[in-house]
Design a protein around this nucleic acid. Structure first.
Length: 838
RNA sequence: GCCGGAGUGUUGGAAUUGGUAGACAAGGUGGACUCAAAAUCCAUUGCCCGCAAGGGCGUGCGGGUUCGAGUCCCGCCUCCGGCACCA
C-alpha cells in the first residue's frame, strides 16, 4: 500500500492517471486556442522545473502560503477550486515578488466517509482512501495549482499518525490528556461521541442526527487550561476576519463574577454556586441544582420528595438537548431542603431544574428573580418570592430588571452602583472565607476519543496493576490493524480484535489491554501545518529550526465552517507545542482568509440536492484558466457567490481575446514613430500594473480581473488602429506578467510564443512608474448646486484657480447660473468644480 | 435577547480617503458577416418625460450633517451568520 508521496518523487510521477478528455467543446469560432494541449504542456514543465519545491533558506524572505488540506472525497468540487485558485494565485504572485514560497498539499485522510463506505462495500478504507487521494491530486494538478509535492502528507499514514500519538503522549505527560467519565454527546447515527464543537443546534455536525447525552468514560484534551490565552491572543490576530474572532470569543465565553458556598440547612452538606451578579445575593429567594448534580441524592434520600425528584432526573436524562430547549416553559421540582443565604441567613428552598446545566460553572445557582428573567419565570410559576435589589427606573414595567441602577434591599450594599456593589460583595465573601472572585469559561475540554475504526489509535495501555500506561515512544506507531468488521457497535471495532487489545503492560510486563478508541480527526489537523515544514522527518515530529524559518503560516485560506473547530484546536495545540519549546510561535496563522461559499440558485451546492456544477466538466469544456479566472471574477472572495452558468463563458471569451491579441489576429503592429496614442497605452499599462498589484494585496481579485479586461480591450482597439511595435510588445509583456498568477497556462504559452526563453513563473513581478501611471487628461465635472451640468476635458495638473475659471466660462454653466449670485465655488481639481448659486 | 455582517440596474458586481453612481462581465435588443446557424464584430441597454436638445428621479425606509452622501450621524425595516435557560 503505497503512500501517495512515498518514493518522494517529483509531482510528475503521479500525473495523468486519468485520461484527459478530448476537447468536446464547441469552440468560439476558428481562433479558439487549444487549451487542453497547452495546459498539459505547462503542468508538466512546471513540475519538472521544480520551481515550487523549496527549502528553508534564512537568507531569503519566506512566505508560507497554505490552503486547508482537504478530506480526500475523490471529487474536486467548486469550493476546492475557489480555495486552490486563491492559494495558487498567491503562490505564484509571491514567488514573482521574490519570496521563498512554501505551498504544500496533503490529505485529511482519516474520517467517517471512508469508513462508512467500507461498511457498505467491504472494501478496506485504506484502499478506498488512497484511490481517492490519487484521483484528487490528479484533479488538483489539472487546475494548474502548484505545490511542493515532496512534502505531501496524509494523516492516515503511519509516518504521520505516529506523531499524533507522540503528541498525545506529550499532552498526557503534561496532564493535558485525561480520561474521565462525563455526560457526553453521543451521535446514535455515527455511533460515536462528539466534542462540543461538533454539535450544532443539538445535532451532529457531520450527519445532522440528533445528539443524545450519555455518561461515558472518554479521553479529553484539557483545552480549558488554555482558555485565557486562547482568548487574550485573539487580540493579536489583527489579520483575521473579525467574525471568526468574535465566534471564538463567544465560544470561549469568559465571564467574571464570584464563587461562593452555601450550606444546606439541617444537613452536613454544602454546594458552590457561581454568579456574575454578586451584587444581587441579598435578592436570592431560591437555589437550583442541575438534575445531574451529585448532591441531589443526599438531599432527598429517604424523604417524601425522593420519588418525585428521581422521576424528574430520569426525565431530564432521557431528553435530548433539542427537547429540553424546545420546551420553553421552565420545569423543576422542590427537593424539600433549604439552603442558607450567607449574607442574611435567609432559608431559601432548593429546587432541581433542567435550566441549570451541569456542564457550566458548578452546576448549581443562586436564583435572584428580581434581576434574572429565567429565575423570574421560574419563581412566578412556582410561587416563590421576588425581591428587587436594583432599583428600576420609574417607568420600568418589565419583569426582571437587568439594567443599571442603585442597589436596594441589600444591607451594606444599599445605595451603591452595581459595579461597586459587586466589588464590595466579593471583598466581603473573601473576608468571611465563604467565596472568592472567579472567572468562568463556557469552553469545555475537547473530547477527542471516538468509537470508530478509521482514525489514529490512542497509544495507551490499560494495566490492571499500573493503570493507564503510555506506550513508550520507541514503540510508536501503534499501528491501526486491519479488521474484519468495521461496523461500530457502540464501541470501537478495534475492541473486537483480541490480537490488538491483548498486550503486555509496558511498565510491569503483565497482561494488559490496549485502549481501543481512536482520535478525533481534528487532532490530525491541529498540527499538520507544522509537519509540512519538515514532512519527511523520521526522527522528530518536525525540526524546530525548520519550523522557526517557515512558521507562522503567513496566509491561511479556507472555509468559515472551521471558525471554532479546526482553527481553535490548532491554536491550542500550537500553544502546547510552543510551551514544549518546539513551535517557534504561539499563534500558527498570521493571516486568515475565509472564502465564501459557492451556491447554485441560492442553495449550497450538494450532491443530495443534485445541484452540482462539476469542475471536471468545466475543465474539459472551458479549461483551467477560464475556470480559475471565473472564480476570481465572480465576486468578493470573502462573500458567498451564486454560480452563473454563463459566467465562465465571459472569462473564456476574454482569454480568447488575449490569445488573438497576442498572436496578431486583431492586426500586426508596425515600426512607426511614437505618438500620443502610444504614450496613452503605456500610461494605461502602468495603471493596470498598479491596480492589479494593489488588488491582489488586498484580496480584491474580483476587481483585478476587470483591470486586465480593460487593458486588453484598450490594446485590441489600439492594435486595430495601428499600433507601434515597441509599445505594443511592451504592453503585452506586462499584460502576460500580470495575467500569469491568474491564468498561468495561457500566460506561459504566450510568453514563450512572444520569444521569451525564460519561464514566466520565475520572472519578477512588474513595477509601475507612478509618473507614467498618471492620467494626462481627465474629465472634470462642473456642478451647479451639486448637480452635474457640464464636463470638460482638462489637463490633470490643472490648478484650482484655472479649474474655477474654466468652469465659470462654460456657456452652459453661465446659462444655469442665470442671474443668480455665485455665493461660493468649490474647486477640487482635476475632478470637480461645484458652483453654489443663491 | 446579545454580538457581527449585508441591502446598488434584469443578474453577478464596481465606486479603496465624502467628489462623474452603475467599471468589468452576464443576459436582452438591433445590426454586420453567413444559404443558414454557431462563433466573431459593431451599436444599444437604470427608471420616467421628450421628436430631439435636454430635463426629472434613482444606491432598503425616514430624518440629519455637508457646497456635495452609496460612503458620515440618528431612528427604523429586511436578510444572512454566530452565541443563547452559560447563571
Amino acid at each position: 500500500m503505497q503512500h501517495p508521496s512515498a518514493g518522494g518523487g517529483r509531482a510528475g510521477q503521479g500525473r495523468n492517471r486519468l485520461p484527459r478528455p478530448e476537447a468536446p467543446r464547441v469552440p468560439f469560432g476558428g481562433s479558439m486556442y487549444d487549451f487542453q494541449k497547452i495546459e498539459a504542456k505547462w503542468q508538466e514543465r512546471w513540475a519538472d522545473s521544480g520551481v515550487f519545491e523549496v527549502e528553508a533558506d534564512p537568507s531569503r524572505p519566506k512566505f508560507y502560503n497554505l490552503t486547508m488540506y482537504p478530506y480526500p472525497s475523490g471529487a474536486l468540487h467548486q469550493g476546492h477550486v475557489r480555495n486552490y485558485t486563491y492559494g495558487d494565485l498567491l503562490t505564484r504572485y509571491m514567488t514573482m515578488r521574490g519570496y521563498n514560497v512554501l505551498s504544500p498539499m496533503g490529505w485529511d485522510s482519516f474520517g467517517l466517509p471512508a469508513e462508512n463506505a467500507a461498511i457498505a462495500t467491504g472494501v478496506h478504507p485504506r484502499i478506498n482512501t488512497e484511490k481517492q487521494i490519487a484521483r484528487m491530486s490528479e484533479q488538483i494538478r489539472r487546475l494548474g495549482a502548484m505545490y511542493d509535492w515532496r512534502r505531501e502528507i496524509a494523516s492516515h499514514h503511519p509516518d504521520y499518525y505516529r506523531w499524533d500519538q507522540w503528541l498525545f503522549l506529550k499532552l498526557f505527560e503534561r496532564g493535558l490528556a485525561y480520561k474521565a467519565e462525563a455526560p457526553v454527546n453521543w451521535c446514535p447515527n455515527d455511533q460515536t461521541v462528539l466534542a462540543n464543537e461538533q454539535v450544532v443546534d443539538g445535532r451532529c455536525e457531520r450527519c445532522g442526527h440528533e445528539v443524545i447525552r450519555r455518561n461515558l468514560s472518554q479521553w479529553f484534551f484539557k483545552i480549558t487550561d488554555y482558555a485565557e490565552r486562547l482568548l487574550a491572543d485573539l487580540d493579536q490576530l489583527e489579520h483575521w476576519p473579525e467574525r471568526v474572532r468574535v465566534m471564538q470569543r463567544n465560544w470561549i465565553g469568559r465571564s467574571e463574577g464570584a464563587l461562593f458556598t452555601m450550606q444546606v440547612d439541617g444537613l452536613d452538606a454544602s454546594f458552590d454556586v457561581f454568579t456574575t451578579r454578586p451584587d444581587t445575593i441579598f435578592g436570592m429567594t431560591f437555589a437550583v441544582l442541575a438534575p445531574e448534580h451529585p448532591l441531589v441524592d443526599r438531599l432527598v434520600a429517604g424523604t417524601e420528595y425522593e420519588a418525585e425528584v428521581r422521576a424528574y432526573q430520569e426525565k431530564a436524562a432521557k431528553e435530548s438537548e433539542i427537547d429540553r430547549m424546545a420546551e420553553g416553559d421552565k420545569t423543576g421540582v422542590f427537593t424539600g431542603r433549604y439552603a442558607v443565604n450567607p449574607v442574611n441567613d435567609r432559608r431559601v428552598p432548593i429546587y432541581i431544574a433542567d435550566y441549570v446545566l451541569m456542564g457550566y460553572g458548578t452546576g448549581a445557582i443562586m436564583a435572584v428573580p428580581g434581576q434574572d428573567q429565567r429565575d423570574w419565570d421560574f419563581a412566578e410559576k412556582y410561587g416563590i418570592d421576588i425581591i428587587r435589589t436594583v432599583e428600576p427606573p420609574a417607568d420600568f414595567d418589565g419583569k426582571a430588571y437587568v439594567g443599571e441602577g442603585r442597589v436596594i434591599n441589600s444591607g451594606f450594599l444599599d445605595g451603591l452602583d452595581i459595579e461597586t456593589a459587586k466589588e464590595r460583595m466579593i471583598a466581603w465573601l473573601e473576608e468571611k472565607g465563604i467565596g472568592r472572585r472567579q472567572v468562568q469559561y463556557r469552553l469545555r475540554d475537547w473530547l477527542i476519543s471516538r468509537q470508530r475504526y478509521w482514525g489514529c489509535p490512542i497509544p495507551i495501555v490499560h494495566c490492571p496493576d499500573c493503570g493507564q500506561v503510555p506506550v513508550p515512544e520507541d514503540q510508536l506507531p501503534v499501528e491501526l490493524p486491519d479488521v474484519e468488521d468495521y461496523a461500530p457497535k457502540g464501541r470501537s471495532p478495534l475492541a473486537a480484535l483480541d490480537s490488538f487489545v491483548n498486550t503486555t503492560c509496558p511498565n510491569c510486563g503483565g497482561p494488559a489491554q490496549r485502549e481501543t478508541d481512536t482520535m478525533d480527526t481534528f487532532v490530525d489537523s491541529s498540527w499538520y501545518f507544522l509537519r509540512f515544514t519538515d514532512a519527511r522527518n523520521q526522527d522528530q515530529i518536525f525540526d524546530p529550526e525548520k519550523a522557526a524559518y517557515w512558521m507562522p503560516v503567513d496566509q491561511y485560506i479556507g472555509g468559515i465552517e472551521h471558525a471554532v473547530l479546526h482553527l481553535l484546536y490548532s491554536r491550542f495545540i500550537t500553544k502546547v507545542l510552543f510551551d514544549m519549546g518546539l513551535s517557534p510561535v504561539e499563534e500558527p496563522f498570521a493571516r486568515l482568509f475565509t472564502q465564501g461559499m459557492i451556491r447554485l440558485g441560492g442553495a449550497k451546492m450538494s450532491k443530495s440536492k443534485g445541484n452540482i456544477v462539476d469542475p471536471l466538466d468545466l475543465l474539459a469544456s472551458h479549461g483551467a484558466d477560464a475556470l480559475r479566472l471565473y472564480h476570481l471574477f465572480m465576486g468578493p472572495p470573502a462573500e458567498d457567490a451564486d454560480w452563473d452558468e454563463h459566467g465562465i463563458d465571459g472569462t473564456s471569451r476574454f482569454l480568447d481575446r488575449v490569445w488573438r491579441l497576442v498572436t496578431g489576429e486583431f492586426g500586426e503592429p508596425t515600426d512607426r514613430e511614437e505618438n500620443e496614442s502610444d504614450r496613452a497605452v503605456i500610461s494605461e499599462t502602468h495603471r493596470a500594473i498598479k491596480k492589479v498589484t494593489e488588488d491582489i494585496e488586498r484580496f480584491a481579485f474580483n476587481t483585478a480581473v476587470p483591470a486586465l479586461m480593460t487593458l486588453v480591450n484598450t490594446l485590441v482597439d489600439y492594435v486595430r488602429q495601428g499600433a507601434r511595435r515597441e509599445t505594443f510588445d511592451y504592453a503585452v509583456e506586462k499584460l502576460l506578467l500580470l495575467l500569469s498568477p491568474m491564468a498561468p497556462h495561457i500566460a506561459h504559452e504566450l510568453w514563450e510564443r512572444t520569444g521569451h526563453t525564460t519561464m514566466l513563473a520565475t520572472e519578477a513581478w512588474p513595477e509601475y512608474d507612478p509618473e507614467l501611471a498618471k492620467l494626462e487628461v481627465v474629465t472634470m465635472v462642473i456642478q451647479v448646486n451639486g448637480k452635474v451640468r457640464d464636463r470638460a476635458e482638462v489637463d490633470a495638473s490643472i490648478s484650482a484657480d484655472d479649474a474655477e475659471r474654466l468652469a465659470l466660462e462654460s456657456p452652459r454653466i453661465k446659462e444655469w447660473i442665470g442671474d443668480g449670485e455665485v455665493k461660493k465655488v468649490i474647486s477640487r481639481p482635476p475632478r470637480l468644480v461645484n458652483i453654489v448659486v443663491g
